[in-house]
Simulated scan of single mutants.
Amino acid sequence: MTFQIMTDSTADLSQTYLEQHDITILGMTVTIGNKTYETIGNEALDNATLLAAIKKGETVQTSQINSGQFSEVFKTFAKKNEELLYLAFSSGLSGTYQSAVIARDMVLEEFPEAKIIVLDTLAAASGEGFIVEEVVRLRDAGKSLTETLEILSVLTKRLQSRFMVDDLNHLARGGRIPKAVAVVGTMASIKPLLDVDTEGKLRQVSKVRGKKKAINQLIDKTLEDMDMAYPKVIVSYSGTDEIAQQIKSEIIEKSKITDVDVRPLSPTIVTHTGEGTIALFSIGKIDRS
């Protein structure tokens, strides 16, 4: 193994996948009322519990991973002289990346020979997971950390993340989008479509009347912009997977792509999107603009 890989719970990767590929993970926490839940491990918060609390109107909030947590893990790799690549949740959406940078610098003062790379994926949810999976593929193919970083310098810019949510007020309350955008989203049958920009922040890209038209636009735009050197789409959802499975079938029917993976959003993400979120992730032909 040429280097070690680390990420966090916002990447929407299953515990099975993480264990199979020897990926270290740290979890953000979600607080519902006065109780704080972990998002990794056997006692991790599940989406059913979270969504039930949101429907009841309970206060829910997330907490980022702090520098102390990062420092503890980074030191374990530094002591073993193992190269580490940490793939971080977008700095445009959380302070987790900055906490990791602070921790890395502290650890390097004690272990100056250590190689700890903290990479801002500028991505969220399965977009972050998409990048992690590509890194696993590169590492398993024998690529060095330096070679992998060169490839990532292209891929992270070309990652396409498109999504819609049923209730934009969740994102507005968390400061992820302007309140004015959420107001539009409450209008009858108007579905704002969003993506992740070059700074890793959420932005509205269009408004579509009707959920079906919005979904069709998500699919068509994803297929139109895809780089077929990476013929893979991840469809993420919150709540039930019925619509996500329909989208998978439509993508396969409309294209030659057969690698279409459907997976649930993590509780950390669902806290800020609520139920009914649909997101599509792929690698585009050109950099995101």
Rank of each mutant, 00 (worst) to 15 (best):
N81I: 00
E83Q: 15
E83N: 13
E83H: 11
L84P: 07
L84M: 08
L85F: 11
F89I: 14
S90T: 13
S91H: 13
S91A: 15
L93M: 15
L93N: 04
S94L: 13
Q98T: 10
A100E: 09
A100F: 14
A100Q: 10
V101Q: 12
I102A: 09
R104A: 02
D105H: 06
M106S: 10
E109T: 10
E109M: 11
E109R: 10
E110D: 14
P112R: 09
K115A: 00
K115I: 12
V118H: 04
V118K: 06
D120N: 15
T121K: 06
T121Q: 04
A123H: 07
A123S: 15
A123E: 09
A124N: 13
A125R: 01
G127D: 02
E128R: 08
G129A: 06
F130L: 14
F130D: 01
V132A: 05
V136C: 11
R137V: 00
R137T: 07
L138Q: 07
R139G: 01
R139K: 15
R139Y: 00
A141G: 12
A141H: 05
K143D: 02
K143Y: 12
S144R: 10
S144Y: 10
L145D: 02
T146E: 15
T146Y: 12
T148M: 12
L149N: 06
L149K: 08
